[in-house]
Amino acid sequence: MSFSNDSLHFQYVVSKDDFTHAGSASSDVKNKLKKMNVDAAAVRKVSIAMYEGEINMIIHAYGGTIDVDIYEDRIVMCLKDTGPGIANIEEAMQEGFSTAPADVINLGFGAGMGLPNMRSNSDEFNIESEVGVGTTVTMTIYFNPA
């Protein structure tokens, strides 16, 4: 954790195939926001968007980091993995499009809703990817004024 005068920064390391800890980073952020005068609707959007991103990093990517910045009016989540990268982003953003392997589908994941859910729960959403290098997703969610 680091901080400046007006924001908080947390970094979470997500390891590949670590299913048993899947969702622990988003759960931690959720529990922090709940203690921080953030409206319940925003907390819900953050926890869903970040959970989906975290799961994606475990299922599809070789792991990576999630940087979370909390400001007075918004939260910015930057999910950065180290590959394999997405060849066709447009296709990957479609609801129901999935490349998840069978063992993951058996766990209830891989319905092809991860990226679409991340986008629909974010106020600002950006995805950049390069095959062989990795994918970076940045999501911003604004808090409703009290």
Binding site: L8, K32, K35, N37, V38, Y71, E72, A146
Partner: peptide, 15 residues
Amino acid sequence: YMLGKSMLESINNMV
């Protein structure tokens, strides 16, 4: 369970 009365106070207290 709130840590502050405002978001700014919450951020400071979370730090």
